[in-house]
Nucleic acid binder design. Structure first.
Length: 182
DNA sequence: CGCGAATCATTGT
DNA sequence: ACAATGATTCGCG
């Protein structure tokens, strides 16, 4: 298991991955900011992790940096190690992965989409534990009333991520209906 | 509007 | 097993 810190402008994004054979699999993505230095958080969560100076994959560096900057980029879900997730969380994350760039979905909408229409709140808690923010675009999931809702990296960051994708948020912090995807 | 009850998967005890 | 805990939602006063 390895980790590296990717510099995106002024921000640092932590990346933990593993290699099964020749295939690189992302285990966890750490958002910039908040308390503690990035490396400390990572080593606490993954005691068996090894630091790498050089990036193991320039492609993944650019993928993450691009997404963080609001660019539209595609990647395959097989890049991620979803095997540690519960069934429910996996369903939520797979569905979230499908939300198009520049669009948003609601917690209740996702719940309906995966067949548990009344599980909006459970969808929220599943997303709160999303191991792959940025890659699995949980920042595109907002509340039914159009408010942004919460976000692991802070609601200010959620807003920035959406705006970088071209979503215009009105002065009262509400996302216009035109951006709703489902 | 604000408030509380409903809802549901997950986690800790 | 069971109670507690949320990135929520809806209906009511």
């Amino acid at each position: 298991m390895f980790y590296q810190v990717i510099k995106v402008g002024k921000d640092e994004i932590g990346l933990v991955w593993d290699e099964a054979g020749k295939k690189v699999r992302v285990e966890y993505v750490y958002l910039p900011g908040d308390k503690g230095k990035m490396a400390n958080r990572i080593v606490r969560d993954f005691p068996a992790v090894h630091k790498t100076q050089h990036s193991i994959s320039k492609d993944i560096d650019q993928l993450i940096a691009g997404l963080y900057n609001g660019q539209k980029k595609n990647f395959d879900l097989s890049l991620l190690n979803l095997s540690k997730l519960t069934d429910f969380s996996a369903k939520v994350l797979r569905q979230t992965y499908k939300i198009p760039h520049g669009k948003v979905a609601t917690y209740s909408g996702l719940a309906a989409k995966i067949g548990n229409p009344r599980a909006a709140r459970a969808v929220g808690t599943a997303l709160a534990d999303n191991p792959f923010p940025i890659l699995i675009p949980c920042h595109r999931v907002i509340r039914a009333d159009g408010q942004l809702g919460q976000f692991g990296g802070g609601s200010d960051m959620k807003k920035k991520l959406l705006e970088r994708e071209g979503i215009i948020i009105d002065p009262q912090g509400v996302v216009p209906l035109k951006h709703m995807s489902y």
